[in-house]
């Protein structure tokens, strides 16, 4: 399926879902369960093994730097 077909189909999907939904006036629910979300600031930690493993999967790098280009996704 090409991108255009996917897009067309997506438009149909959205139309039908929105029609099915209809109108409403209520407060939105973002979080189903709410608790305190704070964490005490404490001594920092670093896992050197993780650091090396994470860097090793970078597709492009220059020594210890990732290398990337500016661009846009939308």
């Amino acid at each position: 399926m090409n991108r255009e077909e996917v897009k067309e189909q997506a438009e149909r999907v959205l139309r039908e879902l929105a029609e099915h939904l209809g109108e409403i006036e209520l407060e939105e629910t973002y979080n189903v369960i709410q608790v305190e979300g704070l964490r005490e600031d404490a001594a920092p930690e670093v896992d050197p093994e993780f650091v090396e493993a994470a860097l090793s999967i970078a597709p492009r790098r220059d020594e210890r730097y990732y290398v990337a280009e500016a661009g846009a996704w939308v």
């Binding site: 929105a18 939904l21 109108e23 409403i24 006036e25 209520l26 407060e27 939105e28 629910t29 973002y30």
Partner: peptide, 11 residues
């Protein structure tokens, strides 16, 4: 769309 869906979620 999105905010309305969140309202239905409350319902």
């Amino acid at each position: 769309y999105y905010r309305r869906a969140l309202q239905f979620r409350s319902l």
